[in-house]
Amino acid sequence: MNRQASIVQSHANALGALAMSAIQRAKKRLQFREACRNRRPWTEEEVELLRMRYADEPTETIAAELGRSVANVYGKAKRLGLSKSEAFLASALAGRLNGSQGVTHRFSKGHMPWNKGKKGLPSAGRMAETQFRKGSKPGNWLPIGSYRTNQDGYLQRKVSDTGYPPRDWVSVHVLLWEEHNGPVPPGHCLCFKDGNKQYIELENLELITRAERMRRNTIHRYPPELRDAIRAVGRLKHTIRRVEREKQN
């Protein structure tokens, strides 16, 4: 009982920290919205100054004189349809705008890359000893006709060897159905009548629409009070997993 109580207390403390974190994030969002609402509007004099000087002066200089951010000045100029003049872009004042920044680190016109015409890179050191040879197969490779059980618990058989698992492996119950009834129609799927995925018999298979399958697998088929309990448990599990991930990070 003491161990269970300590676990519950730890989860409660974690949820408390998580709640405080959520409150802080919400507070920052509210502060940002308040700052946006209280943003200083542009006066007619500032707009006129921007129209006169934006084309031929650095934006940083104009922003400093107006007491505004560079991004704010850029945004206002864009809304007004203003742009830098060709003379300014060609000058040294333009900096990155005229394309001169980083020019010493670019490939020159006509530059030939060292690996042009080469396929792959040459093996260095002992690389060649551990590389796959042509025709080699991975250690988990299985021949056609092999069986496996996938993560969802369905028994599958390998029907081809293309290297693309969704095409190579087909569920055995689907193969059984198609052998007797043809392909599964679009928008339909097969389910086991008794819910046992290992009882693969034709009389245990049922062809239903995917919409019907969704209705069967959702919580809406339960009474309202049970649906609320399932949702509450799901939210609790989600919160616990998120707290555990935060602890690991």
Rank of each mutant, 00 (worst) to 15 (best):
L236N: 10
L226V: 09
F32A: 15
S91A: 05
N115V: 03
C191W: 05
V103C: 06
G182M: 02
L207N: 08
T61R: 04
K119N: 02
R29T: 11
K109R: 12
T149R: 14
R3P: 00
G75P: 01
M52N: 10
K28D: 15
R245G: 06
S160Y: 01
W169C: 04
A22M: 12
R29V: 09
S6D: 11
R242A: 15
E201A: 12
L49F: 12
N150C: 11
E60C: 00
S146E: 12
F88I: 02
S108V: 10
R40A: 07
G81S: 09
E65W: 00
R157I: 14
E65F: 00
I200D: 12
E206A: 05
E178Y: 01
G187P: 10
W141L: 05
L66N: 05
R51N: 08
A22E: 15
I230V: 15
Y154P: 06
H180I: 07
Y222N: 09
P165G: 04
C191P: 01
P166D: 00
R157D: 09
T61M: 00
R3W: 01
W141E: 10
P143H: 00
N72E: 11
T209K: 12
T239H: 15
R157T: 10
T239N: 15
G102Q: 07
I219L: 14
C189I: 03
L176P: 01
R96D: 09
G110F: 02
N150G: 08
S136E: 13
K237M: 05
H220A: 08
V70P: 01
A92Q: 13
G153A: 04
A90Q: 13
E203A: 11
P138E: 06
Q101N: 11
E244L: 13
G102H: 07
G117N: 02
N181M: 14
R3L: 12
Q4P: 01
W169M: 01
N181F: 14
I7H: 00
R96N: 12
S21K: 12
K193H: 08
M52S: 09
